[in-house]
Every structure is written in structure tokens, then in C-alpha cells.
């Protein structure tokens, strides 16, 4: 693995710029660093190339004819296969608002023109390294999860839980539940629990509506009730 590291530092890059002077300047700097560089004169040409051949990174100009940088970026980030390719926006110094917009749209980074070669190489190396790690992570996750789950995990991260809500947690215990469950079939136990939840939920809602003060003046619309029932199932009964 480590032996491949040096050759992995270079990548297949696509430079998208309508200005030939910029294409020459960028191409020169990148090829000197051992990257394979392809060029597109406008956004449409860039998308055509991206659909036909694999790239590790895109350097994308904002102001271009046919399809501009924003449009290309939007197309890339909405495409399931292309959104994994990091995009570095290149723009003039006085377009800082546009840069902010591009980062929000999903660009990985940005560079001001005329591009400083030291910054260019640093940002490209960082982006390629991040992509490499993401690719490795994806490969690993794909081994134990479906593509959909893998995509979701990569997009949202590995934190537990889905979202934060304002909630009241209600802990309840059914007395002698073990004895109750032992004397009933699993279907009957589930039915009993469902009935219990329905009744508990209804009474909680009623309490919330009738007794707002005791619930810290939260209205039902702002509140989520989390009902946690602790009970002990015997493994053989639940199946």
C-alpha cells in the first residue's frame, strides 16, 4: 500500500476554462507535478468529458460561455456518480461572493486567479488525498452495506441517531411484565403492548394539551413525546 503512495500523489485532472492563457498556465503547472491533464473550453464540453472518462479532480472556472461554473457544479453535485469528484473553483479575486456560493453548492475548495503555484499544488494534493480516503471508505462500507446505505453513511457520517428534536422522554415500566408475558402467546403480548402504547400516547397528548404549564409551556407542535417502555422478554417467546 505504502509503495503506491508516491504514484498516488498524481491524478487525472480536468481543467475547465474558456480562457486559453489560463488553460496553458494551469496545464503547465499541473503537468510539471506529474498529473495527467485534460482541458475543456466550456461547461458543456466539461460535462461531456466527465461522463465519458474518469477524473480525480476538476478545476472549474466560474465565468464561461454555454454553461458557466455554477451550472456545471450543480450538474456535478446532483449526479450520483459524478458528485464524488472534488471540484476546485478558480475565480478572480473580486468574485468572492461567487466563491462563497460555490462552496455552498458543494465545491471542495477555491483558488484566486492568477493562480499561485504553491497554493495550487497544496490544494490539489489535499483534495486528491481526501478523495482517496473517501474512495477507500466507500470501498470498505460497500463490503457490508447496500449501495444506498453506503451512500447515506458517507454523506451523513457515522454519528448515532438521525436528527436532534426537542423531546420529553417518558420512561415507564409494566409491573410483573415477565409474569404477564409468560402466560400469553407472543401475538397477545404484542397486542397488549400496542394497546398500552395507544392509551399512553393518547393520555400524554391530552395532558400536554390540558396542562401546558406543567409541561414547561411547550405546545404539542413544538414537542415530541418519546415513550420508552422497559420490559423483559423471554427470548423463546419473542422468537
Amino acid at each position: 500500500m505504502l509503495n503506491n503512495r508516491r504514484s498516488n500523489d498524481s491524478g487525472r485532472l480536468l481543467v475547465v476554462d474558456d480562457n486559453k492563457v489560463n488553460r496553458l498556465l494551469l496545464g503547465r503547472g499541473l503537468e510539471g507535478r506529474g498529473h495527467q491533464v485534460a482541458f475543456a473550453k466550456d461547461g458543456r464540453e466539461a460535462l461531456d468529458m466527465l461522463l465519458k472518462q474518469p477524473f480525480d479532480l476538476v478545476l472549474l472556472d466560474i465565468m464561461m460561455p454555454v454553461l458557466d461554473g455554477y451550472q456545471v457544479l450543480a450538474e456535478l453535485t446532483s449526479d450520483k456518480d459524478l458528485r464524488n469528484i472534488p471540484v476546485i473553483m478558480t475565480s478572480a479575486m473580486d468574485e468572492i461572493d461567487s466563491v462563497a456560493k460555490c462552496i455552498e453548492l458543494g465545491a471542495e475548495d477555491y483558488l484566486f486567479k492568477p493562480v499561485n503555484p504553491v497554493l495550487l499544488n497544496a490544494r490539489i494534493s489535499a483534495s486528491l488525498e481526501k478523495k482517496r480516503l473517501r474512495d477507500q471508505q466507500r470501498e470498505l462500507i460497500n463490503k457490508f452495506a447496500t449501495t444506498e446505505v453506503a451512500d447515506e453513511l458517507i454523506a451523513d457520517g457515522f454519528e448515532l441517531g438521525g436528527k436532534y428534536v426537542d423531546a420529553t422522554a417518558l420512561f415507564a415500566d409494566i409491573r410483573s411484565f415477565t409474569a404477564i408475558s409468560e402466560s400469553r402467546t407472543p401475538t397477545e403480548v404484542i397486542e397488549l403492548l400496542n394497546t398500552y402504547f395507544t392509551l399512553m400516547f393518547d393520555s400524554c397528548i391530552t395532558m400536554l394539551l390540558c396542562n401546558k404549564l406543567s409541561f414547561l409551556e411547550n405546545t404539542i407542535s413544538q414537542h415530541t413525546i418519546l415513550c420508552i417502555l422497559t420490559c423483559k422478554f423471554k427470548r423463546c417467546e419473542v422468537g
Binding site: D18, V21, P65, A92, K113, P114
Partner: peptide
Amino acid sequence: EAFRRAAHTLKSNAAS
């Protein structure tokens, strides 16, 4: 748009 783009390219190239 075309006017702005042409001026933009000239600005960038002259600075280079």
C-alpha cells in the same frame, strides 16, 4: 454577459 466575459478575460490575462 458576452461584454462582461470578454472584459473579464482581458483583465485576467493582462494581470498574468
